[in-house]
Design a protein around this nucleic acid. Structure first.
Length: 868
RNA sequence: GCCGGGAUGGCGAAAUUGGCAGACGCAGCGGACUUAAAAUCCGCAGGUCCGAAAGGACUGUGGGGGUUCGAUUCCCCCUCCCGGCACCA
């Protein structure tokens, strides 16, 4: 904190006026408490055995990129305020932090700076941990998790063995996404609009590779259904996950290939959600990459060339991200398939709008009832046969020909053999049953969600604990031999293939089955494996025998409140839901979902754009802390906007917050009341406030105004923590309270505010500030003579009676227009209000010479007089 | 194209159940303190128009319509911005 000292020194020579001791020196106060908190490692530790109710509040762990950014500060300020609030409400709070510390940037930095990834990463962690501590975040550091260390990643390996045992990890050669910049494979979830999620301008290529996959699709249905029960999750995230999983109910139907040549007796299986329209199918369309296309083309060189063109075109469009906009076209193969429902021969085409990676890569084309098929059929003059018509309300009525294509479920079949006359929904059911009976198809469900490819051809990740033996094939590393340690001295500058493949000591191993030579798997795991279960490790972070103890996890899980950025809506948040279900089925845990409630905070932007180095609009937390203090940085990040919305950072805004903190401090310095009664006993303040406000010794108006405002403020802040989380309005409520205190300073000086009462007010004010500005709150807590631990001091309670206004102002409208206001007592009757209103000059003017039609009085809110 | 979210002063925003639009803060202006400035404290402040002023009139929550005594809030249509999905058969 050399910067901080610099600013401090600069200021010291300014401190020569009379009000020196009233000036709030954030650096002095914050460094004092920073040092004190440093001495007490167990300050924020969760209690392992407790009769209190538990509360697990978690913020997404950061990637240790080097330094915290404002997005982190915002994220952690929200979580920290909540954690502190829950502590003050008597909960046993678990509030841990860790490091998602495997991943590509470490390798890139290593190449650039010639530093080993491990050192670079650990150095960053040390720096960011120091930043977090300086910001005053209350983490239980005894549970810190660092995913790149063997005591963590060994459990990734252990889980991998379990996945393998369960048949949930398997090896498959397939077409995969390849980012040339990352020089590695990406999961589907990591491809954004055809580009790499980390390199937004780098087009992802397709490569044929043998890879490890995790069978996420096993839980596709549960992942989808479970979303309905996650009521504490934002609808947005649930929708995104639903879209991603992309469940679609339909029917598989086999079309027999017609003709002697080609694979004899082979069939083309098509997937359709509208089997009811199958009598209108006038062609079969294949994806250019469909395996049967090669066989169909056979020696037809012309066809092969055309198909190759379609393939190239599709790939290009996919990479450019505009598949969906390319013009539909295709080529007839000259071959035919037989519609199993009516025995009709239909031509087989290959078309650029059919995707190999959805459904079966083949469709039946029904031009009359599908927009795409219609467009295609029009272009190539294929037959368009109407088989569904609108439901006629009157059977005698002649049904008008619907406009084509007629795409609706709400219809009746015609020209469909035995199914004519059925509704679409009935027909789908009956026809699927028929197909299954006759064994040429069945009702089925397809998903957009694919299995998770987790192999990465990179160094800085968890080694996949597998061996390849010439004799025994794929052999898992025995559990007792874990962890497979990631070697330190690896030349990662070499390109081509996995870096670990160039380390003979690593690659060469012994087969545990036959004792012969074996080759180690050299790919590492996707880092999303690390973050899929880290929050369980927090509950039992030093367990040497298992990832965690199930009993301990059961106490803490599910996470009560998870807080992070929405950018993880389908990556991390779907993988970790999968992992929870997998662990549950292993018998390790009993919860179905990892987190009960999820909160996604908005981005921190500046000048209307996301902060980025290239735009030069980055605000450094270190600089803010040095200039205004941690409290100001935190408070501002909560005050500037509601937490779920984007926050537009304004440098002058944080200055205002800094001023506010100084204002609180100055008031307290000038008016501190150390009420002897309260120092001796830490009796709850409510009782004495009540007493002070009781009829026996009525408070004078100034004191009563303070009391009223205080209780209104406690209510607003408490309600918001329970409900909407609009900390911006909580903080403005506290500001209003402070404004009232300032307005009462004269009355205080004149002794019109009883000391014990004021002392209680000050105490509650400090309590209200504690979740948001812990440094200042602790300083003031000490200043007012409190000896107890503020972190766990009971949260103040509000009294509805004391919060109530005695006098209220009722706006008076005439025909909905504001014409005047009357001040009445809070319990005034409608008659009184009306009487006063009619006495008001302006109101009288507005209703003069007119007839009063109606009077609407909303108790305590408004009076509207309707005239004609 | 589909699904979300959003649009309110010069700026960030508030209005929790249909009831005073603009709380709180920033920037601005004025005053007090000061030799002066900073800091601090107090006050003013949506817009337009009338008025010397006090004050008053009209208007105003992206645009248009509707329901209502009353709409930032509910309904219908439209524009723009942000995010997600997208030839998904």
């Amino acid at each position: 904190m050399t910067q901080a000292e610099g600013v401090d020194a600069e200021r010291s020579d300014v401190r020569n006026d009379v009000r020196n001791d009233e000036r709030y020196d954030a650096q002095r106060v914050e460094s004092k408490w920073f040092e004190r908190w440093k001495q007490n490692a167990a300050l924020y530790a969760a209690e392992p055995h407790s009769t209190k109710k538990k509360y697990y509040v978690l913020e997404m762990l950061p990637y240790p990129s080097g330094a915290l950014h404002m997005g982190h500060v915002r994220n952690y300020s929200i979580g920290d305020a909540l954690a502190r609030y829950m502590w003050m409400n008597g909960y046993n709070v678990l509030h841990p932090m860790g490091w998602d510390s495997f991943g590509l940037p470490a390798e890139n930095a290593a190449i650039q700076n010639n530093t080993p990834p491990r050192l670079w990463t650990l150095g960053n962690i040390a720096n960011m941990k120091a930043q977090m501590k300086r910001l005053g975040f209350a983490y239980d550091w005894s549970r810190e998790v660092t995913t790149c260390l063997p005591d963590y990643y060994r459990w990734n390996q252990w889980f991998f063995l379990k996945l393998f045992e369960q048949g949930l990890a398997y090896r498959k050669k397939s077409r995969v996404n390849w980012c040339p910049k990352c020089a590695t494979v990406l999961a589907n979830e990591q491809v954004v609009g055809g580009c790499c999620w980390r390199h937004e301008d780098t087009v992802v290529e397709q490569r044929e590779l043998e890879q490890w996959f995790v069978r996420t699709t096993k839980y596709a249905d549960e992942l989808l259904c479970g979303l309905d029960k996650l009521e504490g999750w934002p609808e947005k995230v649930r929708t995104m996950q639903r879209n991603w999983i992309g469940r679609s109910e339909g029917t598989l139907v086999d079309f027999k290939l017609e003709g002697a040549s080609g694979p004899a007796g082979s069939t083309i299986s098509v997937f359709t959600t509208r089997v009811d329209t199958i009598y209108g199918a006038t062609s079969v369309q294949l994806a250019p990459e469909h395996p049967i296309v090669k066989d169909l083309a056979g020696a037809n060189a012309d066809l092969r060339t055309k198909v190759d063109q379609l393939i190239a075109e599709q790939r290009k469009a996919k990479e450019a991200g505009d598949i969906g906009e390319i013009e539909k076209h295709g080529v007839a193969t000259g071959r035919y398939a037989v519609n199993p429902f009516n025995g009709e021969k239909v031509p087989i085409w290959v078309a650029n709008y059919i995707l190999m990676d959805y459904g079966t890569g083949a469709i039946m084309s029904v031009p009359a009832h599908d927009e795409r098929d219609y467009e295609f059929a029009k272009k190539y003059g294929l037959e368009i046969r109407l088989v569904v018509v609108p439901l006629a309300s009157d059977p005698e009525e002649t049904v008008a020909e619907p406009a084509l294509p007629f795409v609706t479920h709400d219809g009746m079949l015609i020209n469909s053999g035995p199914y004519s006359g059925m509704t679409c929904d009935d027909a789908i059911k009956k026809m699927s049953e028929h197909a299954e009976q006759k064994k040429f198809g069945k009702a089925t469900v397809t998903y957009r969600l694919k299995d998770w490819g987790i192999s990465r051809q990179r160094y800085w990740g968890t080694p996949i604990p597998m061996l390849y033996c010439e004799k025994d094939g794929i052999v898992p590393v025995p559990e007792k031999d874990l962890p497979v340690i990631l070697p330190d001295k690896v030349d990662i500058t070499l390109t081509g293939g996995s870096p670990l493949g160039k380390v003979p000591e690593f690659v060469n191993a012994t087969c545990p089955k036959c004792g012969g030579p074996a080759r180690r798997e050299t790919d590492t795991m996707d880092t999303f494996v690390d973050s899929s279960w880290y929050f369980y490790r927090y509950t039992d972070a030093h367990n040497d025998h298992a990832p965690f103890d199930g009993k301990v996890a059961q106490y803490w899980f599910p996470i009560d409140q998870y807080i992070g950025g929405v950018e993880h809506a389908i990556l991390h948040l779907i993988y970790s839901r999968f992992w929870t279900k997998f662990m549950r089925d292993l018998g390790m845990i009993t919860n179905d979902e990892p987190a009960d409630r999820l909160f996604t905070q908005g981005m921190v932007i500046k000048d209307g754009a996301k902060m980025s180095k290239s735009l030069g609009n980055v605000v450094s937390p270190d600089e803010m802390v040095a200039r205004y203090g941690a409290d100001a940085a935190r408070l501002y990040s909560l005050f500037a906007a509601p937490p779920d919305r984007d926050l537009d950072w304004q440098d002058t805004g944080i200055e205002g917050i800094h001023r506010f903190l100084g204002r609180v401090y100055r008031f307290m310095v000038r008016n501190t009341c150390v009420a002897t009664s309260l120092v001796a006993s830490s009796a709850p303040s409510l009782a004495s406030v009540r007493e002070a406000g009781s009829a026996a010794t009525p408070l004078q108006p100034a004191a009563r105004a303070i009391q009223r405002k205080l209780h209104q403020t406690i209510k607003r802040v408490s309600d918001d923590f329970q409900g909407r989380w609009h900390f911006n309005t909580c903080i403005s409520a506290i500001m209003e309270l402070v404004n009232v205190l300032y307005a009462s300073e004269e009355a205080i000086a004149q002794g019109a505010v009883p000391k014990p009462f004021l002392s209680d007010v000050e105490r509650d004010l400090v309590l209200l500030l504690a979740p948001f500005a812990p440094y200042l709150a602790h300083e003031l807590w000490e200043m007012i003579g409190e000896k107890s631990n503020l972190l766990k001091a009971p949260w103040p309670k509000y009294d509805a009676v004391l919060a109530k206004e005695e006098e209220i102002e009722i706006p008076v409208q005439v025909n909905g227009k504001l014409r005047g206001r009357v001040v009445v007592s809070a319990d005034a009757t409608e008659e009184t209000v009306l009487e006063r209103a009619l006495a008001d000059e302006k109101v009288r003017a507005a209703i003069a010479c007119k007839q009063v039609v109606k009077k609407i009085y909303v108790t305590g809110k408004l009076l509207n007089i309707v005239v004609k």
